[in-house]
Amino acid sequence: METILKLSNVEKYYGSKSSLTKAVNDVSLEVQKGEFVAIMGASGSGKTTLLNMISTIDKVTSGHIFVEGEDITKLKGNRLNKFRRDKLGFIFQDFNLLDTLTGYENISLSLSIQNINYKEQKRKIEDISEKLGITKILNKYPYQMSGGEKQRIASARAIITNPSLILADEPTGALDSKSSGQLLKNMEYLNKELSSTILMVTHDAFTASYASRVIFIKDGKIFNEINKGNLSRKEFFDSIIDVVTLLGGEMNDAL
């Protein structure tokens, strides 16, 4: 198995010496190619900080992050943007689509900044749209779409460049349960059929149960980790709930 992402002893401190907050405290983990990993934790547990560091939006205090063997904590300026452009795909809680662009244009922007020509862009977009069932909404503007539709456009944008790693930050956070289910099935499809590697941050047990592995974070440290293995989604959900219960009161909203 090829290792896509490797974190070794990553730490992130906030504040000054007198009042130090360890948002992420000595975290090491690996994600293999084709995995769908969920990171679970209560608000303030450090899971979003962790994701921000992987996505190079935030900088580590110490430790190293390797993506496909490259140490991204050493990257600066334009090489950072280039790294994000070529290696990463993003799905956000609030979709982050550009209001002024249609669905099609939102997706194509990811390709056009890679200097891919129009014909190739068109072929790729038509291909992915069919797979994700968004062909009909391609010419709509974000304000004309429902939350679920927006998130599917965002997923298409994340996957279209064939990134090494897709990062999803609470992707179902702003969706109703029906749209959530649809989106998660889409992500499952990306993972299984297109063999995308996905790293997702969530505090919702149902969302996490679609992953193949769940890592629990508490107070900036890895608390536990469970694999789906051969379990059904329902059984996996139950075992996630068990850990959540163990984690204590703060995670109760995960139910």
């Binding site: 996505s55 943007n81 280039k82 994000r84 452009r85 689509l97 550009l98 209001d99 900044i113």
Partner: peptide, 16 residues
Amino acid sequence: KNKYRVLRQIGADEKD
């Protein structure tokens, strides 16, 4: 402001 953040996230060049 947020639009430019999105551009950065999808990896647009700072110069661009």
